[in-house]
Computed example of a mutant assay.
Amino acid sequence: SVAVPVGEETADRLVAALKPRVEGLKVGLSTEPDSDYGPVVSKAHLEKVQGYIDLGLKEGAELVVDGRGFSLQGYENGYFMGGSLFDKVTPDMKIYNDEIFGPVLSVVRTKTFEEAAALPTKHQYGNGIAIYTRDGDAARSFASQVQVGMVGINVPIPVPLAYHTFGGWKRSAFGDTNQHGTEGVKFWTKVKTVTSRWPSGVKEGASFVIPTME
């Protein structure tokens, strides 16, 4: 996941607010209601996510919160990992361009709204994105121009209800339709076309030509 603040002051305030929140995430069993999240799917994936953190440091990003080495008491052999927070990530870094699928948040600082809005459009993936603003014009401009399948405006996770479609664009898409909603109905629907013509009477005789508009 990536957060893109506009302006250095906003970025500093955002990172300062995120740091205690990430550090305070409760990692536990997925079946426990008070857990923020559970383990990753496998040992191989845990090592992969941890490898991305190593890579981010090598690429020059600033690791604000390090979730590596986390161990859950009683489940020391589980595939658990603490939340991690990177700051000063740039678009040329692999931790920005790849989907990590782990508890890692990267902060990419930008100077202008236009610079920030262009990032998701240029990215190879385009699943979901959100903008936080009090400027309605900026929100409308962003929503109409950004090349991403699902957009939230002051909504943290832009996943619509089931009667709307769910799906991304670019490399976040699979197949030619989205899930749920009208797209889901369309996937399971066969189209039948019936063409009929009712003659005004048998006295006019049979017609063996394609009907045309008069």
Rank of each mutant, 00 (worst) to 15 (best):
S30G: 14
K111G: 00
K43A: 11
D66S: 07
M81V: 09
A116C: 13
E115I: 09
E62G: 05
M81T: 08
T31P: 10
Q145P: 15
S30Y: 08
L119A: 12
P33I: 08
A118L: 05
G149R: 00
L57Q: 10
D87S: 01
G38D: 09
A138I: 14
N127H: 15
L57P: 03
V49E: 05
D36Y: 00
G82N: 10
L63D: 10
K58R: 14
G126L: 15
Q147I: 05
A138G: 09
M93H: 06
K94I: 10
S106K: 11
F101A: 01
P33C: 03
R68E: 00
V41L: 06
K111W: 01
G126R: 05
K88W: 11
R109P: 12
D135W: 01
T121E: 15
L55I: 12
H45I: 12
S144F: 14
V146M: 07
E76N: 08
L119H: 13
S84Y: 05
R134F: 03
G60S: 11
V64N: 02
D92K: 14
P120V: 12
Y79G: 00
V49L: 00
A44F: 11
F80G: 07
D36K: 01
G67C: 03
G67S: 05
F86T: 06
L57C: 06
V40F: 11
A138V: 08
K58A: 15
K48R: 15
A130N: 11
G56P: 09
D92I: 04
P91C: 04
T31A: 12
Y79T: 09
K58L: 14
G67L: 12
F86N: 12
D66I: 15
Q145I: 01
T90L: 03
S71A: 03
F70Y: 11
S35G: 15
G51Q: 00
S30I: 07
V148H: 09
V65E: 04
A143G: 06
H45K: 06
D66M: 06
Y75F: 02
A143V: 07
G67F: 07
I131D: 08
V104C: 05
F80K: 14
M81D: 08
S71D: 00
R140T: 02
N127F: 14
Y75C: 01
A139M: 07
G74W: 13
Y79W: 05
L46G: 04
F80M: 14
E32T: 09
G56F: 10
R140M: 11
A61D: 15
G126I: 13
L72M: 04
S35D: 11
V89F: 03
N77A: 01
L46R: 12
E76G: 08
D137C: 14
L46P: 08
D92F: 09
V41R: 10
V107W: 04
Y79K: 12
I129F: 09
D54Q: 04
T31F: 11
A118C: 01
I53W: 07
Y96A: 04
I53S: 10
G51H: 04
P33M: 06
T112G: 13
G128H: 07
K43D: 13
D98H: 01
